[in-house]
């Protein structure tokens, strides 16, 4: 099995640690991973701004770069949701893309569904708040979600629970949006920051020392608010915790 690693553009530039952790984790599990450097971005910023024609070249590049892999794995629920659920709407007539889309998986989803991993060898002696990033939750269905009446599950949570010493805190609002939302963070800056602050205070009241999640974008937004207010809570991508990284 050959896996292509898709690292979101902003993770590549600003959060290489999350990318490295993903790579390390996959390699440690015996997966043959390649990072094709011809990749750039999934195209979501343009697509979510309504400019599908500007997103199309990104999708075409994605298809060309990743078609040869058995699976494409990415440490981002949002980018994966873009590829899997929204590329179809771009109207690209590449048969390789249609076959590729279902093989594109978020990291925890890949570990849980493809590799069947139920426990990882890692230690993280901290109180951790899990931020359920919305696209992972409601588009990829990585967890049951508080709105729906179905048997509860969470692929990310179950993996985190296997980490030694890690204590997941209980949030008052288990899956409310952090307010990042891509260009929403800028276009609706006031509401975006109000949402982020409310998420932080929920984690803080629950006693979290670290906030984690499957999307670095949400965490970047929360980190921006945390650092501005001098709050000591740290953010870490879930891959960093699962591969045994320390709090930096």
């Amino acid at each position: 099995m050959k896996v292509g690693l898709f690292i979101p553009c902003y993770v590549d530039q600003f959060y290489p640690r999350a990318g490295l952790a993903t790579l390390t984790l996959l390699e440690r599990l015996g997966v043959e991973v390649e990072f094709p450097t011809a990749q750039t971005c999934c195209g979501q910023p343009m697509f979510n701004s309504g400019m599908a024609q500007l997103a199309r070249p990104c999708a075409a590049r994605f298809a060309a770069v990743f078609a040869r892999y058995d699976h494409v794995v990415s440490p981002s629920g949002s980018c994966v949701a873009m590829v899997r659920h929204h590329y179809e709407e771009l109207g690209i007539a590449d048969p390789a893309l249609a076959g590729l889309r279902p093989r594109v998986l978020e990291l925890c989803e890949f570990l849980h569904d493809v590799l069947g991993v139920r426990a990882v060898q890692a230690e993280f002696p901290h109180k951790v708040g899990l931020h359920q990033s919305c696209h992972g939750l409601r588009e990829l269905r990585l967890a049951s979600g508080s709105e729906r009446v179905i048997a509860p599950f969470s692929k990310v949570r179950s993996l985190l629970e296997s980490v030694q010493g890690l204590q997941l805190v209980d949030l008052a609002r288990p899956d409310e949006c952090c307010g990042f939302g891509g260009t929403f963070a800028v276009g609706e800056e006031a509401v975006s920051c109000a949402m982020g602050r409310d998420r932080i205070s929920d984690h803080q009241q629950a006693g979290a020392e670290v906030i984690t999640g499957v999307d670095m974008s949400c965490l970047m937004h929360l980190e921006g608010l945390l650092r501005r207010s001098g709050n000591r809570i740290r953010v870490l991508h879930v891959a960093e915790i699962l591969c045994g990284d320390r709090v930096p």
Partner: peptide
């Protein structure tokens, strides 16, 4: 306005890769 930008690392992921 209300948030810090991420601290830019020296190397990108692809540099490290």
């Amino acid at each position: 306005r209300q948030r810090e930008l991420p601290a830019p690392p020296r190397e990108s992921f692809r540099d490290l890769y």
